[in-house]
């Protein structure tokens, strides 16, 4: 449910063509954050690394979109009024999209997202897409990701202790250094996967057939409220776009 609504929010942000519509979007998203009781600090921490992407996109737009008063010129780089507007607009739009995505990841466990994805993709099983298996794989990948990060950190320190230069310079033996990190990580992954397969078998795993859920999907009044809010947001947006 949450996943569908997030997708709807995504679409809405993409549909906002005027600054005013964007502002409407922003208001709703900020309210959503308020409801979820997420502090700006947490948001900043999550989005910080992605801001580079936002700024890059904005800068590119600034250069490529031309028109209006030219403020600044350096060789072929021309910064014009429309360019600046486009940059600001797209930058904000991207930021809002990221905020929507962060809203989902900050409020929802990875396992729940995986389950939701499986539910949304369920119709695809009709055309023989192994939806359950894909979702299971994603869940396991998410489960092992932090573990591999930790293991990689230990391997890195161990190889540093053996005077490894971790510069990744391919001309200075960087490749063999890379192997010194990657090979142990992969052997570890194989080792884990072998036992994991046994452990899953031992617990009667046999694919998605006949499996039940600890958290079956249920439509609660909260979902109703969220749906209504998004509906009203759509209306506002349509109005704003027409304006």
């Amino acid at each position: 449910m949450k996943l569908t609504l997030t997708a709807a929010l995504f679409a809405l942000v993409l549909c906002a063509f005027t600054p005013f519509a964007l502002a409407v979007d922003a208001t709703f998203i900020i309210i959503a954050y308020g409801v979820a009781r997420i502090t700006p600090k947490e948001v900043a921490a999550t989005l910080w690394p992605l801001l580079v992407l936002v700024i890059m996109t904005a800068l590119l737009n600034m250069v490529f979109v031309q028109g209006g008063t030219v403020y600044f010129q350096l060789g072929i780089l021309v910064v014009s009024e429309e360019g600046l507007l486009a940059a600001a607009f797209l930058g904000c739009r991207l930021l809002l999209l990221l905020l929507v995505a962060a809203l989902l990841t900050l409020t929802t466990s990875t396992f729940a997202i995986t389950e939701a994805l499986e539910a949304v993709m369920r119709p695809l099983t009709m055309v023989h897409v192994p939806v359950h298996e894909l979702a299971m794989m994603m869940g396991i990948a998410l489960r092992f990701l932090p573990q591999f990060v930790a293991e990689l950190a230990i391997i890195r320190r161990a190889q540093l202790s053996r005077a490894a230069e971790l510069s990744f310079n391919p001309f200075k033996g960087g490749l063999s250094t890379l192997a010194a990190l990657i090979v142990p990580l992969f052997t570890s992954a194989f080792r884990h996967s072998e036992t994991l397969a046994f452990a899953m078998d031992a617990r009667c795993y046999h694919g998605g057939e006949g499996r039940t859920r600890l958290h079956p999907f249920a439509f609660t009044w909260r979902d109703g409220v969220a749906l209504a809010v998004i509906g009203s947001m759509t209306v506002c947006l349509v109005l704003a776009d027409m304006w």
Binding site: S109, T110, F111, G139, I140, L142, R143, Q147, R191, H192, S193, T195, L196, A199, M200, R203, C204, Y205, H206, G210, R211, T212, R213, L214, H215, P216
Partner: peptide, 27 residues
């Protein structure tokens, strides 16, 4: 480190009985 399937503990514990088709309340 290599026998847990899920990221969240309750899902991990429920994994076996889910495979057995136990209903949600009993789970």
């Amino acid at each position: 480190d290599d026998q847990l399937v899920a990221s969240i503990i309750e899902n991990e514990v429920a994994f076996g009985p889910e495979n057995l088709g136990i209903d949600a309340h009993e789970l």
